[in-house]
Amino acid sequence: MTSTSIVRLAQRATPARRNRRDWRGWAFVAPFMLVFLAMIIAPVVYAIGLSLFREQLFGGTVFVGLNNYLAVFQDAKFWQALGRVTLFLVVQVPIMLALSLTAALALDSARLHGAAFFRIAIFLPYAVPGVVAALIWGFIYGDQFGLTAGINDLLGAHVLEPFSAQAILGSIGNIVTWEFMGYNMLIFYAALRVVPSDIYEAAEIDGAGAMRTVFSIKIPALRGAIVIATIFSIIGSFQLFNEPNLLKILSPNVITSYFTPNMYAYNLSFAGQQFNYAATVAIVMGVITAVIAYVVQLRGSRQESI
């Protein structure tokens, strides 16, 4: 989106000198373009190339055209993985964003003692590397000796089983919420800080209470930030990898090798040497993510313009 608007701006600015092509601008963007081509475009093109072949342990490499794509569309494991992260997305993202929003509004209300402390405390989990976070929670979830075992002992029964097939998605959701709530809160909080104070003054003069201010001023002002946070969260959910991959050690059967699309692609290539098929899965997943993120953005900006 931003790049197209830049192009439009550029088109608007140039008509006066249309005949003389000036390449000097490219010299300024060249360092960026070089890195962009080498690190973003080239790997994507390479992955697309990979996805058109099949390499076998016996029989070498053959060109298979779009066969890998046809295989992905008929692959029950892939769709099961996609279904799982979609379920995760539908449940976890609203909960996380609602918590983040509440926290941001509370911090912004100026009625909280120690707001600076809470702001950093809620954000802190985001600074913990995802791998470390999953390990910490792995200990907490341990139902033999972890915190969970302590709670179970207290209750006198095996009530909590974070690694059971029924609970595992919730357990992962809990970790992800803990990790990213502060990050999203910061996005919302930053957006709230730029609301001009005269609007609040006008609301106060009009006799609006605190809740009225929240629903009539603050949340509408946050719409753009909410769209951005939602898109980030959708991408994050579809790319779910670290948390399940690390918890797999503690729950090897419940978390399968195709638990999420990214884990599936990873295990296809690194355990099965099926690089071509893994590239296909990655591309299909990338396209699905891009389409959904784009739809959300379109919807979000349309509502904004109304």
């Binding site: 995802g130 990213f180 991408i235 994050g236 779910l240 990898f241 670290n242 990214n262």
Partner: peptide, 8 residues
């Protein structure tokens, strides 16, 4: 989760 895109 952010790390993942980098990993892939």
């Amino acid at each position: 989760m952010k790390i993942t895109s980098r990993t892939v």
